[in-house]
Simulated scan of single mutants.
Amino acid sequence: MKYLILLILLQVDIEEKIKNAPDKGYEIGVAIGTYLPFVVLVIIAYVMFNRFKNRKDLD
């Protein structure tokens, strides 16, 4: 339940930002800034998963 509230509070209207963008460079920046944090979190989770999995195999 608390995650749902957090998700609602953190929603950003990307379409509105892109519609009001002054140029294409701003649109690209909005897209990168929106998706990059999620990509970084997925990569960190993948690396951590592999490290813990491999450490378990060594014991």
Rank of each mutant, 00 (worst) to 15 (best):
M1C: 11
K2T: 04
Y3G: 12
L4Y: 10
I5M: 14
L7Y: 12
L9K: 12
Q11W: 12
I14A: 13
E15L: 15
E15R: 13
E15W: 15
E16F: 10
E16K: 15
E16Y: 11
K17F: 10
I18A: 06
I18H: 01
K19M: 03
K19T: 07
N20E: 09
P22N: 08
D23M: 00
K24Y: 02
K24S: 01
G25W: 01
Y26L: 00
E27K: 05
I28G: 00
G29C: 01
V30A: 01
V30C: 01
A31F: 04
I32K: 01
T34F: 06
T34L: 02
T34N: 01
Y35I: 07
L36S: 05
L36V: 04
P37I: 05
P37K: 01
F38G: 11
V39Q: 07
V39T: 10
V39R: 05
L41I: 14
V42S: 09
I44N: 01
I44D: 03
A45F: 11
A45K: 08
Y46F: 13
Y46N: 13
Y46E: 13
M48P: 00
M48A: 11
M48G: 03
R51F: 07
R51A: 10
N54V: 05
R55E: 11
R55P: 00
R55Q: 09
D57K: 15
D59V: 12
D59C: 09
